[in-house]
């Protein structure tokens, strides 16, 4: 499962671009700071590699292995 703390996100799109399974798309709603956070629209495809979690410069993502 992917959890996103939307209000921490700065909308850099690094997660969206570097997820090997292209799990994320950018939301069309802005967060508290005025950035567009990602949405894990293809969460089912996630392989739990945690690349997005480590790359995110704002600690906004958690990949939770169930």
């Amino acid at each position: 499962m992917i959890e996103i703390d939307e209000d921490l996100c700065k909308g850099c799109k690094i997660c969206t671009d570097f997820c090997p399974k292209e799990v994320f798309e950018t939301s069309d709603k802005i967060n508290k700071k005025g950035y567009y956070p990602p949405i894990p629209v293809r969460e089912d495809e996630c392989i739990g590699c945690r690349f997005c979690e480590l790359l995110c410069p704002e600690f906004a993502i958690a990949v939770v292995n169930e």
Binding site: E3, I4, D5, D7, L8, K10, G11, C12, I14, K33, Y35, E53, L54, L55, C56, P57, E58, F59, A60, I61, A62, V64
Partner: peptide
């Protein structure tokens, strides 16, 4: 739950003052 390691950070200061896309946050992470 989101980010699992917040207890290592001074959480009250987030989001960081780093610019959008800056790599400093990735190093800290």
């Amino acid at each position: 739950k989101a980010y699992r390691l917040k207890h290592y950070l001074r959480e009250e200061l987030l989001p960081t003052t780093f610019c959008q896309g800056c790599g400093c946050g990735t190093v800290l992470n």
